[in-house]
Simulated assay, not measured.
Amino acid sequence: MSTRLRIGFIPLVDAAALIVAVDKGFCAAEGLDVELVREISWANVRDKLNIGMFDAAHILAPIAIASSLGIGHVKVPIVSAFGLGINGNAITVSPDLYAAIKAAADGDLLDPLVTARALARVIAERKQKALEPLTFGMTFPFSTHNYDLRFWMAAGGVDPDEDVRLVVLPPPFMVDSLANKHLDGFCVGAPWNSVAIDLGIGHVLHFTSELLQRVAEKLLAVRAPWAAENPDVMMALVRAHARAADYIEDLGNRDEVAALLTAPGRIEVTPELILRTLDGRMRVAPDGTVRPSDRYLLVGRDGAARPDPVQAAWFYAQMVRWGQAPLSNDLLAAAKAVFRPDLYDAALGPTAPPPVSEPADGIGAFTGPAFDPDDIAGYLAACRRPG
Rank of each mutant, 00 (worst) to 15 (best):
Y316G: 04
A337D: 04
L332C: 03
A352T: 10
G349R: 13
Q318N: 05
L343H: 06
D330R: 10
A313V: 11
G349K: 13
W314H: 06
P341M: 15
A312G: 09
A337P: 02
A352C: 08
Y344D: 09
P350A: 15
A317N: 03
V338C: 12
Q318C: 03
A313I: 08
D308C: 13
S357P: 00
G300R: 14
R340F: 06
A337E: 03
P341N: 11
W314G: 00
L348Y: 06
A305C: 15
G349I: 02
L327V: 01
A333N: 06
L331R: 04
P354F: 14
P307Y: 13
K336Q: 12
L332H: 06
D342F: 04
D302G: 11
L331F: 04
K336T: 01
K336S: 12
A334Q: 08
Y316A: 07
V320C: 05
G303W: 14
A312Q: 07
P309H: 05
A346D: 14
T351F: 01
Q318E: 04
V338F: 09
P326I: 00
D330N: 06
P353F: 11
A335K: 02
L327Y: 02
N329Y: 00
F315R: 10
G323A: 00
K336D: 07
V338M: 12
A325P: 00
P353K: 15
A346H: 07
D342H: 04
A337G: 05
Y316S: 04
A304C: 11
A347C: 10
D302V: 04
L343A: 09
V338Q: 08
G323L: 02
P355N: 14
A304L: 13
G303C: 14
F339N: 07
